Simulated scan of single mutants.
Amino acid sequence: MPEWVPVPGSAKARLIEAALHEFEQAGYAAVAVTDLAAKAGVTTGSLYHHFGSKLGLYTVVRDDVEKRITDRMEGAAAAVGGTGRTAVRAAVLVAFDAAARFGTCRLLGETTAADRPDPIRLTLEALLPDDAGTAAVVLAAAWRAALLETAGGAPAAAGRRALEFLLSG
């Protein structure tokens, strides 16, 4: 969760809500600043005032959603023993289910527009043995691919089944 919570109905809150919707529907690259501002009922100046840029707004939205997902991943892993194959399986599946339920499949499936480490990969790395770091990269990529398939119209159940298949013994 962010350290701040925008006042409901404020320009900042409306921009975040509009960004979440627009980035999910069209993807980061296809969304124009003018579209975000219009959807939020504010000027582009308001967007720049609160977030500095489209990337600044995107980063706030993406960071918040990823934090919610990684918190769930960590909780799922802890519930089944903390580390290892079973924990990774639980974390990946819970993360997929949460992203589908939140309606953030495209947002989380796309490679981030911000230049920073991937929190999904880092969360998975923490659950794996030290010599299995590459597995975290592969699993995060598979998770994102399943999300993008879902965003593209495939049933969420099909994406989940694909991940279950990849994660089975």
Rank of each mutant, 00 (worst) to 15 (best):
A29R: 15
P155E: 15
A158C: 01
Y58L: 06
I120W: 09
P155S: 15
W4G: 03
D115Q: 13
D35I: 00
V137S: 12
S10V: 08
A99T: 14
D71L: 12
A29M: 08
A136M: 08
T43E: 12
T86R: 15
A126D: 14
T134S: 12
L57F: 06
V88F: 11
R72I: 13
Y48V: 13
V137T: 15
D71E: 14
E24G: 04
L124C: 08
R14K: 14
L107D: 08
P155H: 05
E3L: 13
A142K: 07
H50K: 01
L166W: 11
G41W: 05
R101I: 00
L107F: 07
S10D: 11
T43H: 09
L108W: 08
T111N: 07
A37G: 07
R62L: 13
A100D: 12
G133A: 11
V138Q: 12
T83H: 11
L139K: 02
V7H: 10
F51A: 06
V92D: 05
T59Y: 00
L122S: 14
A11H: 13
G75P: 02
G82M: 11
A146R: 06
A135Y: 09
W4M: 03
V33A: 14
A114G: 02
L107Q: 00
E110M: 09
D131H: 15
E74R: 14
R101T: 15
A140T: 14
G109I: 07
K12V: 02
Y48T: 10
A146K: 13
A132I: 03
R62F: 02
L167N: 08
L47E: 04
A13G: 07
G41F: 08
L128T: 05
T70S: 08
D130F: 07
L55K: 08
W4Q: 07
T150D: 03
V65Q: 03
A142I: 00
T83W: 09
H49V: 01
K54N: 09
K12S: 08
E17C: 02
V33F: 00
A77L: 04
G109W: 01
P2A: 15
H21G: 00
P155G: 13
L139M: 14
R160Q: 05
S53I: 06
T123P: 00
G9Y: 12
T44K: 15
G45Y: 13
L57Q: 06
